[in-house]
Design a binder for these strands. Structure first.
Lengths: 175, 175
DNA sequence: ACTGCCATGTAATTAGTTACATGATTAT
DNA sequence: ATAATCATGTAACTAATTACATGGCAGT
């Protein structure tokens, strides 16, 4: 039994929201909110789009004036597969491959300078990301609960709350 | 340039703390605290141990009465490489491949039943994990700040705080 | 002219997962 | 007896990363 794949579902989800996207537009999605939870390079996406087309989950088309850009749309079969995926129960929590925690884990001595250094670096990274997400929230929703894209709104709220609480915790340490 | 590896450093870190472990003991570490941040199956660990032995980062030995169990210890070269890794600056935040957030992201409608279902499932998973970590904390540290394994203590504290704040946030939602 | 971005693709390699496999020991 | 756990290993496969590659178009 092969490993459970995720990337095809993300692509289906994007195409369910947009009706038509090219490979580059899909790739760019991983630079914002989705990038908090999944990364994929264009070199992985283009072959995946071909595979999904062959499987009948998406269809491609080109514009009359520009045959360089290839647009994809979701099919009924793709829609069905996306819904089935969302309905599958959550079986386990994610493993966040967190270098900060991993390195900390191996520092035995409270007085080790590296401990302090790691905490400062992590605070800096978290603050930058928090600012970025707060700007995204303002840009996309402006503090208002939206009619559509409600899930998107929620995960952005959640990511912000999570960053904020991590920062609070780190700053409360007396190292 | 190949992708930055992490597993060898984790193995070095464990052997820096323990002086001698066999493959199974190393594998088992991924079921507790380290498992929050990294997963590895024994089928990945055994070949890695051989590779690291060939590179002179660790050395192997067997007990006189049991040649089935192979124990490994860290070398000076291994120690040096571990310290160098810890000193490398943190460059970016982890991507937690979180199915809950991903699925939520694709739900547009606040009234969609799947939204409520996902939240309930996530709460259940988080509560189970929180209980587990609270028991670990009691077992390992008993509420006391330790002299040694201070980093271990901190990441356990941090994981618990993070789970707690995620639960608070989910429960505060009115879906 | 040069830099950067749009747009798509392939090649080479590594990391990680699942499954297959063996044999010993311990508990019910 | 037989099931579970200890202990080590290999084989087959997939996912993902890095690097290589091409050509057009827009701005300075």
């Amino acid at each position: 039994m092969p490993k459970k794949r995720t990337l095809p579902y993300i692509i289906l989800g994007l195409l369910a929201q947009n009706r038509e996207m090219n490979g580059r537009q899909i790739t760019n999605q991983f630079q914002n909110e989705i990038g908090e939870f999944w990364k994929a390079a264009h070199s992985q996406i283009y072959p995946e789009l071909k595979k999904m087309t062959a499987e009948g989950l998406i269809v491609k088309s080109t514009k009359a004036d520009n045959d360089k850009e290839i647009y994809y749309s979701i099919t009924a079969a793709g829609q069905a597969m996306l819904m089935q995926w969302i309905k599958e129960p959550l079986t386990d929590l994610p493993v966040s491959q967190d270098m900060f925690s991993l390195k900390m884990f191996f520092i035995d001595d409270k007085a080790d300078y590296e401990l302090k250094r790691l905490i400062e670096e992590e605070i800096s990274l978290l603050e930058t990301q928090l600012k970025h997400l707060q700007e995204r929230e303002k840009l996309l929703f402006g503090g208002q609960e939206p009619k559509k894209a409600f899930g998107h709104f929620l995960i952005l709220q959640r990511a912000i709350a999570r960053l904020q609480s991590q920062l609070d915790w780190l700053k409360s340490l007396n190292i």
